[in-house]
């Protein structure tokens, strides 16, 4: 899932300066699961924002809130159309994709981000989320026993650990597992250590964000005549 965390209330308050009616829009998908922008969090941030505005003498600003199923798809945003017309601005509590989808759908409305989108990750334990995937566009997990050195090794090494691996921990951060220790342990348990003997080729970064914004097109799913948006 996409993991995000909320911005500080004063930052959100300053962003919406100059607007008298603001709609906080939550998202019911990834950011609900990572407890950053779902219905409950929207309620908390909404109440805190209204109080914060009042305390700085901007109590006249109306802050209403709603949460939709998914912000990153037009079909789910349509139900907002009528409501949005009653507001000067939107503050999205979705990920960066949600913010931009709202901005494209409502070109006349300023849209502000209420969250900081962090990474693609997993729930490691209750209340702790960890990055697991960089979205590099060329998955090589099969070569590394299902542990991604591109995301989880600070140096993105593909052919074994550096000298900073200490008792299974990374020298960059003692709380972080050494990805290569994990790769070795898993490959050993799976009986596939011999696969690690092969020299891993340098990573092809052209499939990642370095090659510009990416697009996935499934011709068979595109509606005839419409095709992908440019």
């Amino acid at each position: 899932m996409i993991v995000a965390d909320r911005k500080k209330i004063p930052e959100i308050r300053d962003m919406i300066q100059g607007h008298d009616r603001v709609l906080l829009v939550g998202c019911g998908t990834c950011v609900t699961v990572c407890l950053a922008g779902g219905e409950r969090e929207v309620g908390i941030i909404g109440a805190a924002l209204r109080m914060s505005l009042k305390l700085v003498g901007r109590g006249h600003v109306v802050v209403d809130q709603c949460t939709i199923e998914r912000q990153c798809e037009d079909a789910f945003i349509d139900i907002l159309a009528q409501r949005v017309s009653q507001y000067d601005a939107i503050c999205s509590l979705g990920c960066g994709a949600g913010v931009q989808t709202l901005a494209e759908r409502f070109p006349q409305k300023p849209v502000y981000p209420g969250l900081n989108t962090q990474f693609i990750g997993i729930l490691e334990s209750q209340g702790v989320w960890t990055e697991k995937c960089l979205g590099c566009g060329h998955c090589r997990l099969g070569e590394f026993a299902g542990v991604c050195p591109i995301t989880r090794c600070a140096k993105r090494l593909l052919n074994g650990p550096c000298g900073g691996s200490r008792e299974g921990k990374c020298e960059v951060n003692a709380d972080t597992e050494c990805a290569w220790q994990r790769i070795y342990d898993r490959a050993k348990a799976l009986g596939t250590l011999d696969r690690l003997d092969a020299i891993a080729a340098p990573h092809d970064w052209s499939t990642g964000i370095e090659g510009g914004p990416r697009k996935v097109v499934r011709e068979d799913q595109c509606i005839a005549g419409l095709g992908p948006k440019s």
Binding site: I44, A48, M51, S52
Partner: peptide, 8 residues
Amino acid sequence: KLLDEIGL
């Protein structure tokens, strides 16, 4: 923490 953040 939120109450501190908003100044209440």
